[in-house]
């Protein structure tokens, strides 16, 4: 695996996203194990000031072009293909995020490199690069081997520590001139997050409900518990998609990242896209009828049981405890 490792830096509104540093940290470990250099790719008209923050890379390659600002996956992939050719990179790391979704697949289509999705761990041992991915909502893992360490790997946020990819040094930067086609999908405007009645990112206690809550009416059981605890109700995507709670209450990849003191995960399976948004809660209590639900692998306390049965009892017990 002598070819360089190239990390696609991800930015949202002019700021580098954490996933960039997570990948640089993971890339550095691979670079040490394999002897390959670690490069970062930075695209867009505001590349220069951001490049200085990528000191964990041996070198930063920028393509500065306004067409690359908020560009669709196809435009980004074409520029990235240009950088892969320019740097002779063998391994490309990019974020398994809403921002980067599709870029890896497009790059695979244009470069012939295989793509490994949903990756949580990468090892380089005895000359073999192995990627471990999380499939089926976290219920199954897969190990994929990449021949000669060549491929595109889409990395889950939260899989690697951020700090390992942060470095004070200023990296050398090379500006690469590439022809960039006008994007076929044109950015018009941001639609700001709805400001709901409560800001779930500011709560000490969150009562999270998932599909296991079963009906809109049952959400009231969670509201009752949240009220007695002085917290708020939030939810996984299916509950929001059903319209049972407003978008401002969604936790996870597309929704909010929350860090309450206590997070109750009620009827939530613990899919990686939900876990991403609540993994840093100080105490996670999961209630699920399925003893094999992935949420139990990460929660601090677990109850195998029916939330509909437990919720009213728990609310009453708290009322009683508060009265004493």
């Amino acid at each position: 695996m002598a070819n360089p490792i190239l990390v696609l830096a991800e930015q949202v509104r002019g700021e580098l996203a954490d996933i960039t540093f997570e990948m640089l940290g993971a890339g550095r470990a691979l670079a040490i194990a394999s002897g390959a250099p670690l490069y970062a790719a930075l695209l867009g008209s505001e590349a220069a000031p951001l490049a200085a923050k990528l000191g964990a890379a041996d070198k930063v390659f920028t393509v500065e072009h306004p067409h690359l600002d908020l560009a669709p996956a196809g435009t980004v992939a074409a520029a990235l293909k240009g950088l892969v050719d320019h740097t002779q990179a063998g391994l490309v790391l990019l974020g398994c995020t809403n921002v980067s979704l599709g870029i890896g697949s497009m790059l695979a289509a244009h470069s012939g490199l295989p793509l490994v999705n949903f990756c949580r761990a990468i090892t380089f041992q005895a000359g073999t690069l192995t990627c471990t991915s999380q499939l089926f909502g976290g219920k199954i893992l897969s190990d994929v081997k990449l021949a000669d360490g060549r491929g595109i790997v889409s990395v889950y946020p939260g899989a690697f520590p951020v700090d390992a990819g942060k470095h004070d040094g200023t990296p050398p930067v090379e500006k690469v001139d590439l022809a960039v086609e006008a994007p076929k999908a044109v950015f018009k405007r941001y639609v700001e997050p709805e400001t709901g009645d409560v800001d779930i990112t500011k709560q000490d206690v969150l009562v999270g409900v998932g599909r296991g809550i079963q009906t809109q009416d049952n959400v009231q059981l969670a509201e009752d518990l949240a009220q007695i605890l002085g917290g708020a109700v939030c939810a996984s995507r299916p509950v929001i998609d059903q319209g049972w709670l407003p978008l401002s209450r969604q936790v996870g990849k597309s929704g909010m990242t929350v860090k309450p003191r206590v997070y109750l995960a009620l009827g939530i399976s613990g899919a990686p896209e939900h876990w991403e948004g609540m993994q840093n809660a100080q105490c996670i209590i999961a209630v699920n009828t399925d003893p094999k639900a992935p949420i139990f692998d990460g929660a601090h306390y677990g109850v195998v049981g029916d939330v509909l049965e437990l919720l009213p009892v728990l609310t009453e017990k708290i009322k009683a405890r508060k009265a004493t």
């Binding site: 949202v12 908020l70 669709p72 995020t97 809403n98 921002v99 076929k184 999908a185 044109v186 950015f187 018009k188 405007r189 941001y190 639609v191 700001e192 997050p193 709805e194 978008l247 401002s248 969604q250 990849k253 597309s254 929704g255 909010m256 990242t257």
Partner: peptide, 15 residues
């Protein structure tokens, strides 16, 4: 079209 980013942020694109 409306595309989702993170944190409830979305953006409009035209194709």
């Amino acid at each position: 079209i409306l595309k989702e980013f993170a944190g409830g942020l979305r953006a409009e694109f035209e194709v």
